[in-house]
Every structure is written in C-alpha cells, then in structure tokens.
Design a protein around this nucleic acid. Structure first.
Lengths: 142, 142
DNA sequence: GGTGCTAGTGGGGATTAGTGGGAAATAAGC
DNA sequence: GCTTATTTCCCACTAATCCCCACTAGCACC
C-alpha cells in the first residue's frame, strides 16, 4: 500500500527518484500515465493491466469515453526503476503535468501521484479549506 | 499491449518510424487504414483479420454502419516494417489524416493510431478539459 | 561524537533509435 | 528501344537514451 508525501527533484534528464519503501512494489515494472487534475499516475504493472483492460473495453462508439480512454492509454508509458531507484518521466508527460524541477510524490493506496510542487501546494491548501464541506457531502461513505 | 505517445516525423517519401518496442509485434505484417477522428489505425495483421471479419459481418441494412465498414475496409493497406523500422503510409491515407511532417504515434492497447501533431494536441487539450466530467460519469469503472 | 551506510542527486561515455539522402532496380511513357 | 519517373533498398549522420560511476548529505549505529 502506498501512503505518504515525498519531495524530490527531477534532474534535467527527466529522472525522478522513487521513495525507497515503494521500490520493491515497483521492481516488477511500473506504468506512468496522465492523471486527473494535471497530475501523473504511477501504477505497478499488474494494477495497470487491470485498468488498461477496462479502458480498452469501453465502447468505441461514444466520442467522449473514446477520448478519455485514448488519453489514458496513449499517455501511458512503461518505466523501469534503475539501479539508483529512479524512473524516467517522458517529456510529453512532464509537459502535461507542468513539472520541471521540484516535484511531490504522493502515495494513494494503489498508485503514486506525481505533482509539480507549486501545483500540489495550491491544490492542497484549496482542498484543506474545502475539506469540511467535502466531508459533509461524503456523509456516511467514510 | 501498445501504449505510449511518440512524436516522429514523416519524410517526403511518406515513411514513418515505428517506435522500437512495437516493431516486434508488427514484424509479421501490419495493416493501416482510415480511423476515427481523422486519425489512422495501424493493426498487427492478425488483429486486423479479426476486425475485418467483424466489419464484413455487419448488417448491410443500416447506411451508417455500412459506410463505416466501407471506410475501414476500402481504406486498408498492408504495410511492412523495413530494415530501419519504418512503414510507408500511402498518399491517400496521408491526405485523409491531414499529416505532412510532424506526426504523433500513439499506442492504444491493440492498435496504433497516427495523428497529425497539431490535430492531436488540439484533441488532447480539449479532452483534458472534459476529463474530470468524463471520469465522474464513468464513476467506479476506473 | 565519530564512523559507516544509504538515499538522493548529478554527470559522462557508449549505444541505438530516428531521420535523411543516395544508388539501384523497376515501371511507365514517348 | 530509349528515356524518364517512381519505388525500393541500403548506408550514414545526429541526437537522444541508457548504463554506469561518483559525489554529498543525512541518518543510524557504534
């Protein structure tokens, strides 16, 4: 299970260090793709395969779900953790997430999320302000 | 499984480099044809044969499915990956997709899609804007 | 308090993917 | 039958990627 928040830096080759405790779960392969809210999702390969199969099974006929599946499947890229515990984030995904140097890696149960630090701070503070409202709407769910 | 987004260029002979990781799956032959949203679809030959059979089996009665099947079947062309890992895209398909030089090749599970770069960017950014809504509607699926 | 280990970061060299151009072969036209 | 155009095959260059090694700072353990 992935939890926690880590502040790392991206070097000019687009490499990002994975927190040590996560490396063992990603050693068998991982997949990065476009996420929601201008973040990137990083799944262990096995988790990804489940998700990809669902996306591929979406009906081709509807323009909007087709577009969504396209974005996530086309956005995905298989990455490997190198000897130094890093993965290389492809150029086009760095652009999408607006990451350049300072990056936040967060654990979200079954996936990691990768954020530009500034964007993360803004999102976090905004969400904190709204958290009471959100909690109320969630109601009995939690 | 094909995934990922690759930015390549078409030379003036209409040749397009296939990303290395896909070449092995296309070595046995591939088929390009007209796709949806002004893109081109590129299938491994075996996948194509399955799809072509399905298209041929579509009911003749409905004008729109008939048109769709015609577009895909008549537009199809068998291509080979040359020694340098490239395929030649026929002139009429280049025209259909509006590709000239800068091209995006995307992996979509069982096929590749070939887009004009500008068209892809526009399509992707439009979909990004809608992605939160779509994700919400898909709900628990993803 | 010191020493050793490890996580995170940075950089250089070798390999290969991507691209472009030219030569040879084949087909078409006069 | 000869010339011209088009396609196919092959070779060469460049730029990006991969792989390896080195450094530093922080933590833990002695």
């Amino acid at each position: 299970m992935f939890i926690g928040e880590f502040h790392h830096t991206l070097d000019d080759k687009g490499r990002l260090a994975i927190p040590v405790k996560f490396r063992v779960d990603l050693a068998a392969g991982a997949v990065v793709t476009r996420g929601l809210d201008r973040s990137l999702f990083l799944y262990p390969k096995t988790e990804w395969e489940v998700l990809a199969a669902k996306l591929a099974a979406l009906p081709l006929g509807q323009a909007d779900t087709r577009a969504f599946a396209r974005l996530m499947l086309a956005g995905a890229m298989e990455v490997e953790v190198d000897k130094a515990g890093r993965v290389t984030i492809p150029e086009y995904l760095r652009q999408y997430a607006g990451v350049s140097k300072d990056v936040v890696v967060t654990g979200l149960f079954d996936r990691l999320e990768i954020w530009d630090e500034a964007a993360w701070k803004e999102y976090a503070s905004k969400t904190e302000r709204d958290s009471n409202d959100i909690a109320e709407r969630l109601g009995s769910l939690v």
